[in-house]
Amino acid sequence: MEQIAEITISVLLVAAGIFGLVGSFGLIKLPDTMTRLHAPTKASTLGVGGVLLASMLYFWIMRGQLSWHEFLITMFILLTAPITANFIAKAHMHRFGDKNTMPDTGTPRDWATFEDESKEMEPVMTRVEPKPKVTASDHQF
């Protein structure tokens, strides 16, 4: 049992180290900010998650004391990572993003973050009606 736990903990630690390194390497390797935003998510989920899981197993099996601190830290990081990513992307779009190169939203409304405040209370789900297709049978009559 001890042997299996030792192997599991070691594998988790090595995998977490590799993922953390990959995340930070992507931060300096990838070409622009929006792609660079993607790299550290590996470090924050798999890297730190692996380390915390290894620590939990270590203190549980090797030391005989189950601690919930690691679980708390994991939950906190998993909850806050999307929020920080959203904020950073928004800051980048407003500071450096070009509004004309953004893809179309598919609705009459603009991207929510670029919208002026007077439109903010309007309903969101107003889709553009697709134009009726001109089929071959229409032309015959």
């Binding site: 931060l27 660079r36 470090a43 990081i77």
Partner: peptide, 18 residues
């Protein structure tokens, strides 16, 4: 840009926790 620095600081905090 300044946004990349914020992103790097965020990643730094994550690595320090690990």
């Amino acid at each position: 840009g300044v946004v990349d620095r914020v992103l790097a600081l965020d990643t730094m905090v994550i690595n320090i926790i690990a």
